[in-house]
Amino acid sequence: MSESGPEPNAEETWDPQVARWRDPEGDYVLPRALRSLPQPWDASDWRRVVKLPRTGERLAEARRVLTVLLEDPALAPQVPQPPSPGLLWHVWEEFHQAVGETMPRPSQVTWSGVDELVRAWRARSQLYPLQRHVVRHVEAAMLAMIPSLRDDIADSVFRWLALDPAPGRFAPWAVDLAERCVIEDIGADPAVELLGAMGGPEARAALERLSVKPGGPARWENADAAQSALFDLGSEGTSH
């Protein structure tokens, strides 16, 4: 009597029911808002971003990038949530990395390129069950890439701003954008860190609003981060 393999789990048999979408401007996969971002912000390439000078032109770019990430609804699609234990998220990330290696800029990500990558995965000598799920339902993986890339880009902008020796000078415009990004959970960790680095009454007030829990505007873990930033600011104030 032959032994049968293990029964597939809920994730392996899950149908995310995501149909392939078409962009009116061509074979593009990612929204125009991402494709039209200036380089190097569009690819969240930290090796290039970190070298950017904080000139007036680049600061204006950073401000526009964050505004687009917050305000364009195409960057916040409803991504189906995989069943527990949610390991599929990690395999989606693996596929996103492969997409980024072959098509590094959002404007280069096309369905024909994605299909070619799917064929390359299928040609592997071995695919794990969740990898097979990705190639069967690649549209779901690519839909999940949109908010993931949005988060990565915001992350790189806030990290770049925090490198400035006097980030408080950005407060008139950056406090509001950072607070909104924490609430939307876009680049939240470096946004909180920037608020802490800026200090000042506006940044402190934003951190106080974000730290409220339960029932506050931010997710629990982001509220925790805001509380920690406030504590650090208080410690700095008492150490002088």
Score class of each variant (00 low, 15 high):
108 Q>N: 04
108 Q>H: 06
112 S>C: 01
115 D>A: 05
117 L>A: 04
117 L>S: 04
119 R>V: 01
119 R>I: 01
120 A>K: 15
122 R>F: 00
122 R>V: 02
122 R>W: 01
122 R>H: 02
123 A>H: 02
123 A>V: 02
124 R>I: 06
124 R>P: 03
124 R>C: 03
125 S>A: 09
126 Q>C: 02
126 Q>M: 04
127 L>K: 10
127 L>V: 12
127 L>E: 12
127 L>M: 14
128 Y>S: 07
128 Y>H: 07
128 Y>K: 10
129 P>K: 05
130 L>M: 01
130 L>G: 03
130 L>W: 02
131 Q>I: 13
132 R>I: 01
133 H>M: 00
136 R>A: 09
136 R>Q: 09
137 H>N: 14
137 H>I: 07
139 E>G: 14
139 E>T: 13
140 A>V: 05
141 A>V: 05
141 A>M: 06
142 M>I: 07
142 M>A: 08
142 M>N: 07
143 L>G: 08
143 L>S: 07
145 M>H: 14
145 M>N: 12
146 I>G: 06
147 P>E: 12
147 P>D: 12
148 S>F: 04
150 R>F: 02
152 D>C: 02
153 I>Y: 02
153 I>G: 09
154 A>Y: 02
154 A>Q: 11
154 A>E: 14
155 D>K: 04
156 S>Y: 03
157 V>Y: 11
158 F>D: 10
160 W>R: 05
160 W>I: 01
161 L>D: 10
161 L>A: 09
162 A>L: 07
162 A>M: 07
165 P>Y: 00
165 P>G: 00
165 P>I: 00
167 P>C: 02
168 G>Y: 08
168 G>N: 08
168 G>Q: 08
169 R>P: 05
169 R>C: 13
169 R>S: 12
170 F>K: 04
171 A>W: 09
171 A>S: 15
171 A>G: 13
172 P>Q: 09
172 P>I: 05
173 W>P: 00
173 W>D: 05
173 W>M: 03
175 V>M: 12
176 D>P: 00
176 D>V: 00
176 D>C: 00
177 L>I: 06
178 A>V: 09
178 A>E: 08
178 A>W: 10
179 E>I: 03
179 E>M: 06
180 R>A: 15
181 C>G: 00
182 V>C: 12
182 V>Y: 08
184 E>F: 08
184 E>A: 15
187 G>Y: 03
189 D>Q: 14
189 D>H: 13
190 P>T: 01
191 A>H: 05
192 V>C: 15
193 E>S: 12
193 E>P: 00
195 L>N: 10
195 L>P: 13
196 G>P: 09
197 A>H: 11
198 M>S: 13
198 M>W: 13
201 P>S: 15
201 P>I: 11
203 A>P: 09
204 R>H: 14
204 R>I: 11
208 E>R: 12
209 R>S: 09
209 R>H: 14
209 R>Q: 10
209 R>W: 14
